[in-house]
């Protein structure tokens, strides 16, 4: 094109040869940016797709912080006709029970009875589909979540450790004082273990915490929950991985070091909770029976069945 038209103009004397040369150079300059535009439109298309995915996530509504109350939980907990469904299927049905401040409650029941869900409910990780759950007469939503979780300790069933030092795994932040950290470690019977480690509390835990034994992980989880000085402590099958001797000592330690603690413990072993103020027997999402060990032995055949199945174990207290 340029050659034809330009040649024509130059031959006719309308354009100087110098102009033509300049024109030719400009054209060469023009081509590179045009190539880039083609390339850019490709990049832009990719970026638009990526932005779509990102904004989809950003536009999800935030959980709204509605609570205003500063929580100073005494441990008075009440559930009234609480139901929880996962999809179509009910997980917890018509749960009614109450817990007195400073008391100890055990929840026992077979696998998949909904015990863990009950604890999730109590810790506000899941919300009831119907019914009311109150702490000191107020629902969890009414509390400021920050202050609520400062008074509630939760030891999960599976050990969840972060790739940080043991100290950070227990304290999680700088707000925990050294004093309460020490108390938590002593209570969880971790003191000797910590002292045996080369870097003590500053030993780092690998991502999956594989260099620790199951019991050690569980006890670190307990120390984490205790370090915040909770008023209410939720234990999810805590004793499953800890030998009985240690378990007994830990439970004694908790009694001594945290006297006003309200304890709700999911467990398999009746022996350890026989003297608790309340035992709740949960089966297939329903409360089958509740009361003291003595009451349940008299009223609930299912409870007696479980008790008997453990009898051989109970005879040998380790």
């Amino acid at each position: 094109m340029i050659l034809v038209l330009g040649g024509h103009y130059v031959i006719n004397g309308k354009m100087s040869l110098g102009d033509f040369a300049a024109f030719n150079s400009y054209l060469a300059l023009l081509i590179f940016p045009i190539l880039i535009i083609g390339f850019m439109s490709n990049v832009i298309a990719q970026a638009t797709a990526s932005y779509g995915r990102i904004s989809e996530m950003l536009e999800r509504p935030d959980t709204i912080e509605t609570g205003q109350l500063a929580a100073n939980l005494t441990g008075a907990i009440e559930m009234k006709d609480v139901n929880v469904n996962y999809g179509e299927k009910p997980v917890l049905k018509h749960i009614d029970f109450s817990v007195r401040p400073g008391s100890r409650t055990a929840v026992i029941g077979p696998t998949a009875a909904g015990k863990t869900q009950l604890l999730y409910l109590l810790s506000g990780l899941i919300k009831p589909d119907s019914g009311v759950l109150t702490f000191d007469g107020h629902q969890i939503d009414e509390y400021k979540s920050e202050s609520f979780y400062q008074k509630l300790g939760f030891v999960f069933q599976d050990s969840i450790l972060f790739n940080m030092s043991i100290r950070e795994n227990i304290t999680f932040s700088e707000t925990v004082t050294d004093e309460s950290l020490q108390r938590a470690i002593e209570t969880a019977e971790l003191k000797d273990f910590m002292e045996s480690l080369p870097d003590g509390l500053d030993t780092s835990v690998s991502e999956r915490g594989l260099s620790l034994s199951g019991g050690q992980k569980q006890r670190i989880m307990l120390a984490r929950a205790l370090a915040i000085n909770p008023n209410v402590l939720l234990l999810d099958d805590f004793t499953a991985r800890v030998d009985n001797q240690t378990e007994t000592r830990i439970l004694e330690n908790i009694q001594r070091n945290y006297p006003n603690l309200t304890l709700i413990s999911v467990t398999q072993k009746i022996a350890a909770v026989e003297h608790y103020e309340q035992i709740i027997l949960l089966m297939q999402g329903e409360i089958l029976a509740a009361g003291t060990h003595k009451e349940l032995m008299n009223t609930s055949p299912e409870y007696v069945q479980i008790f008997n199945s453990q009898k051989s174990t109970s005879n040998y207290e380790l």
Binding site: F148, Y149, Q150, R224
Partner: peptide, 21 residues
């Protein structure tokens, strides 16, 4: 790695109210 860790363990982070951390 940071994202992966906190996604995997979100329930601990929420229950201990350590989102800020």
């Amino acid at each position: 790695a940071e994202i992966q860790e906190s996604l995997n363990n979100f329930k601990v982070i929420i229950a201990f109210n350590r989102r800020d951390y």
